[in-house]
Simulated assay, not measured.
Amino acid sequence: MWLLFAILSAVFAALTSILAKVGIDGVNSNLATAIRTVVVLAMAWGMVFLTNGLGGITEISRKSWMFLILSGLATGASWLFYYRALQMGEASKVVPIDKMSIVLTLVFAFVFLHETFTIKSAIGCILISAGTLVMCL
């Protein structure tokens, strides 16, 4: 089931980029990010209430709160930079560079989470990096 959700995530991420590129035309990139964030916020809380997930909020540890807040700050920074880049550049070039986050995630997971970095991981990182370079030249 995780694979289906991952595929749907990729489809909607692709749609996000295209829809944002069209929608950001003539709009301040920070304002566009704020509008997007309000919509995401409403959807996220809607799902919490729809699935009766609010009950677990009191069980969240301080450590989890801290890292969820830091993750939110990183997401906000990512979105602000992404929208600015998308406003200034072509989606076909901005998006591949943005997806270099895959390579960075693999490296960070190895360094900070002590996850296994295999030959397959290394080859994948090299191919993604090479593909990004080819697409952006």
Rank of each mutant, 00 (worst) to 15 (best):
G72T: 02
G72Y: 02
A74W: 04
A74K: 06
A74T: 11
T75I: 13
T75Q: 08
G76R: 05
S78F: 09
S78G: 11
W79E: 12
W79I: 14
Y83H: 13
Y83I: 13
Y83Q: 14
R84Q: 05
M88Q: 15
G89N: 15
G89C: 12
A91E: 04
A91T: 10
S92E: 05
V94P: 09
V94T: 12
V94W: 05
V95F: 09
V95N: 11
P96M: 07
P96T: 01
P96K: 00
I97G: 06
I97E: 00
D98W: 03
D98E: 15
K99T: 07
K99A: 00
M100T: 08
M100Y: 01
M100K: 08
S101Y: 08
S101E: 11
I102K: 01
I102R: 01
I102S: 09
I102H: 02
L104Q: 03
T105S: 03
T105W: 05
T105A: 09
T105K: 12
L106R: 10
L106S: 12
V107E: 04
V107R: 01
F108S: 13
F108Q: 04
F108L: 15
F110H: 12
V111Y: 01
V111S: 00
F112H: 00
F112M: 14
F112T: 08
L113R: 04
L113F: 08
H114E: 15
E115F: 10
F117E: 02
F117L: 15
F117V: 10
F117K: 03
T118A: 01
I119R: 13
I119N: 05
K120R: 10
K120W: 09
S121W: 03
A122T: 07
I123S: 02
I123T: 06
G124I: 10
C125P: 05
C125A: 09
I126F: 11
I126C: 10
L127K: 04
S129N: 06
S129L: 13
S129P: 04
A130Q: 00
A130S: 14
A130W: 07
G131W: 09
G131M: 01
T132F: 08
T132W: 04
